[in-house]
Amino acid sequence: MIGCSAGGLGALKPLLRALTPPLPLPVIVCSHSAEPGTGLLVPLLARHARLPVREARERWPVEAGIIHLAPPGYHLLIERDRCFAYSVDEPVHYSRPSIDVLFESAADAYGAGLAGVMLTGASPDGAQGLARIRQAGGLAIVQDPADALAPTMPQAALDQAGADHCLPLARIAPLLNELAHCA
């Protein structure tokens, strides 16, 4: 479960490239970079990732080994039966999709079996969701604000939620690979 905003594309490309297949867990990405109406993020990231990249489809199950992207213009949620749900509720911190909405619902669905990753961004979105993930027993990984293009988002996450790991970008993917393979 990865959230990012400003500068997120630059961070996602190397991060997703470093995730090694076969990955026995699903990856879900909520980026504010997607403009409503454009479907450009999927092909863009697909060129950099070694795992298949797809838009998370309404009502369809979350799949291991796949990178699912939140759709532009909708909130993405995870139901307890581990299927995707959409909503058009009001934007959160001016964002739809919102990282808070995704993380909070994912914390309910996965409990302790979840890792939330907060990358670069210029919005406080995601901090509350990351706190919920930790509260539910999940793991919080935050990009070191000093290493982030836009430090607001990881800093807000550290302030509100704290972190189990605060790392430079380059060390996040290796950690995720390790977590996935020993999970």
Binding site: L77, I78, E79, A85, S87, D89, V101, E104, S105, A109
Partner: peptide
Amino acid sequence: YAPASLRRR
């Protein structure tokens, strides 16, 4: 209703 959104609201 789909539970995740309902719970959030």
